[in-house]
Every structure is written in structure tokens, then in C-alpha cells.
Write a protein that binds this DNA or RNA. Structure first.
Lengths: 196, 196
DNA sequence: GCGTCCATGTAAATGGTTACATGATTAT
DNA sequence: ATAATCATGTAACCATTTACATGGACGC
């Protein structure tokens, strides 16, 4: 499944420009299970237009560059449904942050702390974003997916908060770094909630 | 971070052949946050060898093809640590299955059911795999990451089982509020303290 | 006999990211 | 001033996936 199909999916939710489609992948309900950049969206829209799966209306705006708003055609809707009925390819997840934490023993404690904090912050932000009432979606399928994303992000935040000690030797395994950390300062462990 | 670095990471855990490295990504402790195929592993090993970051020993085996076992050199270990100290690029997750479920209203109910079942099965298998005592890893960083993977998979399985009715409005349709509060309300049941 | 596991590798094709190119408006 | 937001698009580059090529051993 390529970016073309993802764009069709966004357009099912309503007409949009390339710029707006990208925002959907960044902030909208798609953000937690797919991504795409301009370099792939614009060419994809061009192909879809050439194939007659979408139409395009140029819109002049005041104080802003012109917009090209794309709409699904009937053929586009059919093509999208056909695509949706293929077998899904397996999920792929890649996280350099987790990879780094896996090799935490080879890391500068400061760097490990930073990677940990940032990863936690990202997922706290995701929880906040998905918990925001503005973010609610219509339709039970959408709600299901929305809830799934929230459940996963919450699980990550909970685990990271509760198991912090496993990564930073607060328990049995005590090394030099853990001593000065464990006693006093928490290296900003309780960072302000999300907001990034 | 490319496959070269991932291979170095596997080799930190012990010498291995290209074939064995791939298995690490499929079944080992890396499986839940990265992947790689032969087509990228073998060329990567070639480059690493040319760069002097690994050495290679050909090993004849009885009743099996010869093996090329790779080992980290000191330079390789240093290069790996250097790589680990870069800023991690953001996580990327892509799931066609979730994308399809998001558009469940456009799907054949049978197909939706299949996608749902398969997705659940995959994550149940992951939970089983990570719960298996054989799968335990040494070192607190490893345990932390292992526990994180388990927590996420468990969260997915739990959510999918409990919110099944949201997706398939079958008979006892779960109240829509249950989705919103599914995370906030009854989270006590799932707080897997996996890493112990 | 057939499929699967072991084992290595290459080449073509796919597809996406990054950098470039442009440019007005608004907020700091 | 400077950065950010809005807005579109191209081209070079990069990485990965897929298909191909080879071949013995082992279980069914």
C-alpha cells in the first residue's frame, strides 16, 4: 500500500489540499499508524489526478498562496475500496530510541537519560493529543482505532514510568552513575507533562 | 540509522552469520522494534567487512552449507557506540491492518473480520513469544526493552478483546463512552510488570 | 517427489526522504 | 530582522524490498 492509497483514504474523510493531507498524517487520526511527506504526497496526487481517481479545484485565497483542493471521484472511491480488500502487509515498527535503550549499557548515562526522556515525552504528548476532546472522530471504526492508539500510548507511558528503575539501576545492580543519581536529583524525571 | 548499524548491534550480542542475524530480527529481542531482510543484510555485512568494522571466518559445516561467521572488531565496536550517541530519529509505525480497520465501514464484513482476527492473532503470538521464559534476556536495559514490547503487545490484545463490540456492532453493542473511557476507567487489570 | 530449513549472494525495481526552488504573509 | 505558517512542486539520492540464482540435507 503506497502513499496514493493513503491519500485516497484522507480524501474519503473530506476534500483536502496536499498541504492539508500532510497535516492529517502529522496530527490527525492517521498520525499514529502512518506517515508521509511532501515529496511523496504531491507526486501521488499528480498520479491520482492523471488516473482520474481525484479531481482538482484551484482556489484563490486572500493573504495566502493558492490552494489546490482535491476531491475523490467515483472511480477513486471504487479504487480505494478495492485496495482496502487486499490482504494487509504486516505491521512495521522501527524505533531507534528503543534500539538505543536496548544498548543502554554502552551509552553515556546522560545520553541514555535524554533518549528515555524524549521517548516518554513523545508518547505523553500523544496521549494528551488523543485524549483531547477536539480529537474525537465519528463512526465506530474510527473510534475503535482511536481508542487503540490511545491504549498503546498509555501502555508505553505507564510502563516507562513504572519501570524507570529497571533502566536506571535504582535496584540491585548499582553502578557508579546510579549512586549520585539515586540519592538526590531525579535528572528531571518528573518533567512537565507533555507539551512539546 | 541503517542496516549496517543494526547488524553491528546484533554482533555486540555475539558472533553471527548473515542468516543468523536475520533470525535475530525475526524472532529475537529485536523483533518488536526493527526488521531487515537478506537483501539488505548481506550487502551491509560486505560493506562492514570492507570498512574493517567486522571480521569474517568461513566455517565448514557437516551436512550444511558453509557459514560465514562475522565478529566485531574494536573499530566496529567504537563505530557502533558513536552511532548510538547520535540523536535517534523519530519512531515510525505503519500498519495497513489498522488503516483498513479505520475504514471498516467501507469493508466487506468478512474481510474486516479477517483483518481484525489476524491482527489480534499476530499480537497474541507476540505476547506468547515474549512471555516465554526462553526469551528472557540478560541485562537491565534488555529487560526494560523486553518488558516494553510485552506491555505494548498486551495492551493491544487487551484493547482489541475488550472493544471488539465497538468495531462489530454485534448484539450487545458496547456503549460508545466505553471507548473514550476504556483507557481512563479500568486500567488496573493491565499493568504488566513484565520485566521481572 | 515435495516442501522446508540451512546458507549466500546479486540485480532490478520500487518507493520514499532530503534538498532544492519559490514566494507571500504574519507574528516575534 | 527572523522565523514560522501557508502553499506547491521537482530531482537527485538513498535504502529497502523483491525476484532471481544456486544447492545440499532432511522429513513426510
Amino acid at each position: 500500500m503506497d502513499v496514493k492509497t493513503l491519500c485516497l483514504g484522507v480524501l474519503v474523510l473530506g476534500d483536502a489540499s496536499g498541504y492539508e493531507i500532510k497535516k492529517h498524517f502529522e496530527e490527525g487520526p492517521f498520525s499514529h499508524f502512518h506517515a508521509a511527506g511532501f515529496g511523496s504526497i504531491y507526486p501521488a496526487l499528480g498520479t491520482l489526478l492523471a488516473d482520474g481517481l481525484v479531481t482538482c479545484t484551484e482556489m484563490a485565497q486572500e493573504g495566502r498562496p493558492d490552494k489546490k483542493v482535491y476531491s475523490l471521484t467515483e472511480a477513486g472511491r471504487r479504487a480505494f475500496r478495492r485496495e482496502l480488500h487486499k490482504a494487509p502487509s504486516p505491521d512495521s515498527y522501527r524505533s531507534e530510541a528503543i534500539f538505543m535503550m536496548f544498548f543502554g549499557d554502552l551509552l553515556d548515562p546522560d545520553h541514555l537519560g535524554e533518549v528515555y526522556q524524549r521517548h516518554l515525552a513523545v508518547h505523553r504528548a500523544k496521549v494528551d493529543c488523543l485524549s483531547d476532546p477536539d480529537c474525537t472522530v465519528a463512526g465506530r471504526d474510527r473510534k475503535f482505532v482511536h481508542g487503540l492508539g490511545l491504549a498503546v500510548s498509555r501502555a508505553i507511558v505507564d510502563y516507562m514510568e513504572n519501570s524507570r528503575g529497571v533502566l536506571f539501576g535504582a535496584g540491585d545492580v548499582v553502578d557508579e552513575d546510579a549512586v549520585d543519581e539515586g540519592g538526590g536529583g531525579e535528572r528531571g524525571a518528573e518533567t512537565p507533562r507533555a507539551a512539546e
